[in-house]
Computed example of a mutant assay.
Amino acid sequence: MKDYFRKYLEGRCSEDEFLSFINLFLKADKQKELTKNMEEDWKSVRANKKTPDLSPTLHKIHFEINKQEKSENKTRKIVTYLTRIAAVLFIPLAVAFFFTVQKNTSSDVKNQTISTPLASKTNFELPDGSMVYLNAGSSLSFPEKFTGKKRLVKLSGEAYFDVKKSKQPFEVETSELTVNVLGTAFNVMAYQNTLPEVTLERGKVVVNTKSNLQKTLQPGEQAVIDITANTISVNNVETELFTSWINNRLIFKNEMLGNVVQKLERWYNISIEIDNEPLEQKRINATIEYESISEVMELLEITLPIKFEYKKNERKLLIKSSRP
């Protein structure tokens, strides 16, 4: 095994050795060498009957990713490499995350908040055993222990909940609505400047708005809340289109480009501007998994009459019509 490969895995390689390691992933003629090195490392791990803990390395990679807004140009290039490596090396762990814990000293029950920056996501277990998948640019606050008459969590952004059944009702609160359940699986999307959505995969939930509107959802239904019009519309949907992100996929089916761009901005932590308003209405069918943003844009160029350019100084993608 190449020495720099081992040094990287142990977190002690120099800058030159790090760049050599990067080349294994970026150059096609290095793929055989990469495969050989990984196989050797895997055999070594199995021989020692030890499973490597990749969490510290993963945390380090995504910590560097989250600093890129303040980095110089050279650092940004390396961070781009790191983003691609995170997708390749850590597929089993590729729910990138960064979290903070906040203590509430004014109450007997301590609260904590888990947050994910843009281009990151995570999953974790709540004190009652319920599972939460937190999407990019989101945060969830909850007590260290659920007491009282209900299990209350507060969400900003988007999260998927798989709630453990209990006689103690579970409630998700956002700035515009609350969702009440006993035991179920559902997705709540409540980013700023978007219409809140609640998508039910199984079980039953009750959606309540701050203006006292209420709707009960059955599996396969989605509630869209229009705060300005003070309405809740309920439609049957393919729930996978709204929950696939927890499996590191974005699925678009007859989706308008304007909506797609909003999700891509959060997914890749990059600003995207469409300079032609009619283009926002163009419809897209696509599935995105571990593609880079440039690969996604190249796909869109094939399927739509568009072209894109990257404004490096502004860190912005500009989408234009490819027709005169």
Results as ranks from 00 to 15, higher is better:
319 I>P: 04
253 K>E: 03
163 V>N: 08
102 Q>P: 08
188 V>T: 10
118 L>I: 08
111 N>S: 09
71 S>K: 01
267 W>L: 00
23 N>L: 08
200 L>T: 06
209 T>S: 09
314 E>W: 10
47 A>F: 07
53 D>W: 05
74 K>M: 06
75 T>R: 05
268 Y>L: 02
9 L>P: 12
284 I>R: 02
236 N>Q: 15
7 K>T: 02
156 S>G: 13
118 L>K: 14
255 E>W: 00
136 A>H: 03
143 P>Y: 04
255 E>I: 01
2 K>Y: 14
56 P>F: 05
239 T>S: 07
303 T>S: 13
182 L>V: 09
79 V>E: 05
73 N>L: 11
140 L>Y: 08
187 N>Y: 01
304 L>H: 00
67 K>S: 08
163 V>Y: 06
191 Y>D: 00
40 E>T: 15
86 A>E: 14
134 L>R: 00
297 M>G: 09
207 V>Y: 03
201 E>S: 05
97 F>M: 14
307 K>C: 09
110 K>R: 04
42 W>H: 10
75 T>K: 12
166 S>C: 05
147 T>E: 12
275 D>I: 15
20 S>F: 09
309 E>S: 02
34 L>Q: 04
312 K>A: 12
139 S>L: 10
108 D>I: 10
223 A>M: 03
163 V>H: 12
135 N>E: 04
62 H>L: 15
163 V>F: 03
110 K>H: 02
42 W>A: 15
13 C>S: 13
260 V>G: 07
140 L>V: 10
222 Q>K: 06
59 H>Y: 11
265 E>W: 01
298 E>G: 14
12 R>E: 06
58 L>E: 10
255 E>A: 09
37 N>G: 00
210 K>T: 05
269 N>F: 02
254 N>L: 05
48 N>D: 08
23 N>C: 06
132 V>D: 00
58 L>D: 11
242 F>M: 05
127 P>I: 02
118 L>M: 13
